[in-house]
């Protein structure tokens, strides 16, 4: 398990990193936490000619709440989110749940939220949570920064809207109001395994108990994390009663398009998608003190 030969450069600023990326184009890869990239290189599944290490870029490691947005810098670790002071606030319950089940505790010490979004693994956790939270990604290139909604950012398996010579510098999660809660439900064979199935749920209630907004997404259910629009539409404007939850769960099951693998067959995983969405909704409602 020895990687093919590669060059390594350490960037000290975003501009320097982008200059390296511009210079080497498609042969270069950004090294942040390296928790997916390095194993892929050791198996020689990834063979970048140049690694641009951004861990020494000082202004990339931050969690910043401003203007109703939580911004997570490109070198902020999963464990930074897991341990953030405000993470216990129920409005962040989806992100809190995810931050505790990404890979394993050792990986979370190094792995980054933005890196996970950029990796865009079909079984990713952060990508799924980002969909349910309607997050955005800030992408920088030579010409400056642009902000890409997550639905446009996630293009295909292991492919994102980040172009050659560009890098993602931050993820932006809209700050939910105080009648919002979420839940992340994941079934895995063991800690650190990719999800057999996972569902991210975030709902906001109106004062009358009807659903104001809903975000529902699935992991390991297609080429990349998948939004279940139908389930979201079913919920919005309605009281989240049992039959509505069941209908949303059924929509998730139908929408799920997983691959059979050692974790389970297609029918099992489709079934799980529904079970997990229902469980997620019930837990989110319980967190809001509402009853399904």
């Amino acid at each position: 398990m020895i990687p093919a030969a590669f060059e390594y450069v350490r960037a000290h600023s975003i501009d320097e990193a982008i200059a390296h990326l511009q210079q080497h184009g498609g042969d270069a890869r950004v090294l942040a936490g390296g928790q997916s990239l390095i194993p892929a290189m050791r198996f020689r599944l990834a063979r970048p000619a140049v690694l641009v290490d951004i861990n020494s870029v000082r202004d990339l490691s931050y969690l910043r709440a401003s203007d109703g947005v939580l911004e997570i810098g490109a070198t902020s670790r999963d464990s930074d989110v897991e341990r953030a002071g405000w993470i216990g606030d129920r409005r962040w319950s989806l992100i809190h749940d995810v931050s505790r089940v990404v890979a394993d505790p050792v990986v979370r010490q190094m792995g980054t939220v933005v890196g996970s979004l950029c990796h865009n693994d079909p079984s990713g956790d952060w990508t799924t949570a980002a969909l349910a939270s309607r997050a955005e990604v800030v992408v920088r290139g030579k010409a400056g920064a642009r902000t890409v909604p997550i639905d446009e950012f996630l293009v295909d398996s292991f492919t994102t809207a980040v172009g050659e010579g560009e890098m993602a510098v931050a993820a932006r999660f809209p700050k939910p109001d105080d009648r919002t809660a979420g839940s992340y439900q994941k079934i895995e064979r063991k800690v650190g395994d990719f999800a057999t199935a996972a569902a991210a749920v975030q709902i906001s209630l109106n004062a009358d108990g009807t659903v104001r907004a809903a975000g529902i997404a699935l992991s390991a259910a297609g080429p990349c994390a998948l939004r279940v629009d139908e389930a979201e539409r079913l919920l919005v404007g309605r009281e989240p009663r049992d039959e509505t939850i069941r209908a949303a769960a059924d929509a998730a099951s139908r929408r799920s398009a997983p691959q059979a693998d050692l974790r389970g067959g297609v029918d099992y995983k489709k079934h799980l998608a529904g079970v997990l969405v229902a469980r997620g909704l019930r837990q989110a409602l319980a967190r809001l003190g509402a009853r399904a």
Binding site: K190, V191, D193, F194, L262
Partner: peptide, 23 residues
């Protein structure tokens, strides 16, 4: 596990699982 073509499907610890203290 081998598939019917004789490919070994459990070639590393992602697919050959060792439980951790959590399981």
């Amino acid at each position: 596990q081998y598939d019917s073509d004789g490919n070994n499907l459990n070639t590393n610890f992602t697919d050959y699982l060792l439980p951790t203290s959590l399981e």
